[in-house]
Design a binder for these strands. Structure first.
Lengths: 114, 114
DNA sequence: TCCTTTACTCAGTTTTTACTGACTTAGTAA
DNA sequence: TTACTAAGTCAGTAAAAACTGAGTAAAGGA
């Protein structure tokens, strides 16, 4: 998409990026991860208000596979597991900020129309 | 989200931006609109391969309400209707390009891991 | 002893999103 | 007369995503 037509939509880097950040809870998770630098599972769950264990744990697994985050397990009892953004994950932030600024402008315009 | 915590997720400009571009067909539509500058309904449908009338027409309506696109109807017979991005819609493009570049890097990394 | 914490997992159900395929009105071309 | 183009609409259904609520093991505290 970014340059020319892709045969399959999955090949388009932009569509690909959206599959990574486009579902309901991805941004809140990424945001909490970024604010906290590193964070434990339950604390993350508290910060990402309203998320269920199922969605959170599955999201974390997928994001780990995708190379967005790292999971570090400490050999302690009780178990300690910390999550943090990878470099690739952090590289997303500027794009998100740019999108957020556009979103902010749009919100203002939408309000002005009411 | 972009600066501080929002009480409601809908208030976050980034979440808001994603509701605009995050569903399955939004990017392909925006992309076609941007490439063509102005385009008629059926031509748009041909270019956005695989989209159904229902999804396309509903998407266009919502995007018009959101101020992303304009619908211009010509008083001709047969009916001619053209769609194009608004300024606000075009302002999205740089953010999308930035996201697309990030996506491209990620795709390369993912492939390297296989 | 009972309750809480840690980091999850799971079956079942609801909600959301998208797809199927037919239909519309008016005009042109074969 | 039949068929096709324009720009859609619509009821019904399937598929995808998210939610509900409970359960797990091992340890610490009241």
């Amino acid at each position: 998409m970014s340059e020319e037509g892709y045969k399959r939509k999955e090949d388009c880097p932009l569509t690909f990026a959206l599959t990574i950040i486009g579902s309901k809870w991805r941004l809140p998770i990424i945001w909490a991860l970024w604010k906290n630098k590193r964070i434990r599972y339950n604390e993350l769950k508290r910060q990402v208000d309203g998320i269920t264990n199922m969605v959170l744990s599955q999201s974390l697994k997928e994001m780990e596979k995708q190379g967005l985050i790292v999971r570090t397990q400490f050999m302690e009892i009780p178990l300690r597991v910390e999550y943090s953004l990878t470099e690739a994950g952090e590289a997303l932030i500027p794009s998100l900020k740019s999108l957020a600024e556009w979103g902010k402008e749009m919100q203002i315009k939408v309000k002005a129309h009411v």
